[in-house]
Design a protein around this nucleic acid. Structure first.
Ligand SMILES: [Mn+2]
Ligand SMILES: [Mn+2]
Ligand SMILES: [Zn+2]
Ligand SMILES: [Zn+2]
Lengths: 158, 158
DNA sequence: GGCTATTTGCATATTAGTTGCATTTGTGTT
DNA sequence: AACACAAATGCAACTAATATGCAAATAGCC
């Protein structure tokens, strides 16, 4: 549900993803591994820059490389700021609760949609104001275009 | 499911919401009423500015007044851009599908969470890549603070 | 230890959205 | 119809998240 229990060796995680072990990446990854909940780029900059020299842009690039390497999940909680959490086997995909007052993001149990619905209707320590089901993918027209591109690139590579 | 069928008189809608009938508001509202799907501030600026003089900031302020007046719903589809659609009785709340390729937002049938889940697992003309349940509200600690504030303000107003 | 590709830092750009203030406009009143 | 005032608009400047180009630093490999 969260990643506060120490798990996943940072060095090993980087190696497995084929990413070079730099001090900046290690610092960011260690913070993510030890975090009690999802963090923003801003959070990570604030925390890591106390220990070493690291640039804002580097944080963004590191997070993008982690996301693309499957190390972290990028959570778009709305409000234009992305949150990040470990995407390891100790932390399966789960819904999030976003407090509109303090902007914190709270991890919820990894349940199916209908189980989540049930879970939310039980009394909890926070008050739910809206549930947004946000489905992402590729639309009909775009899928056709993608398919054509796939065929075309396949054709070009042989 | 969408608002492409003409409905809701723009003038009347403004009057009911107690908002002054300006040419800019009329232009924005008419576009929203006639839209086949949710629109961004950018979309609305592009479309309305062909017909009259209207500023980018005015669009944002108009949309905020419509949102606060219950005329439109603000949809945060992630990616830092808000979409807007009519919030009239012809257009009940429903989930949205967001195409990561063309960034379009497609309205889905107004079903419950579990019905939506079923609906998504049936073959559709678009391919679903991720389903994000995004719950907003007030967290435990913040709720206590809000409660205290409520009590305090109640105490002060008498 | 040195070579090379990758990563980082810094400056600068972009994009969505907001704010302050002067000007214009809608609306209710004479 | 003219008037008066509050509300709405335009414009410029600002914020915040994120992206990009390029030169300098550094990790991984021999
Ligand atoms: Mn989580
Ligand atoms: Mn819709
Ligand atoms: Zn909170
Ligand atoms: Zn598309």
């Amino acid at each position: 549900m969260n990643s506060s229990i120490a798990h996943c060796d940072a060095s090993e995680t980087l190696k497995n993803a084929g990413l070079a072990k730099t001090s900046q990446r290690m610092a960011v990854l260690e913070k993510l591994i030890g975090a009690p909940g999802p963090l923003t780029a801003r959070d990570l900059l604030a925390e890591t820059s106390q220990r070493l020299k690291i640039n804002r842009v580097t944080i963004y690039r590191i997070l993008a490389s982690f996301r693309d390497g499957g190390i972290v999940r990028e959570i778009d909680a709305g409000g234009g700021t992305a949150y990040y959490e470990m995407a390891c086997r100790h932390n399966p995909i789960h819904p999030h609760f976003h407090c509109r007052r303090c902007d914190c993001l709270i991890c919820m149990p990894p349940l199916t949609l209908s189980q989540t619905w049930e879970w939310l209707t039980r009394p909890t320590d926070f008050s739910v104001e809206s549930i947004n089901v946000h489905i992402t993918g590729v639309c009909g027209p775009c899928r056709e275009k993608e398919y054509c591109n796939d065929v075309a690139s396949e054709r070009n590579t042989r």
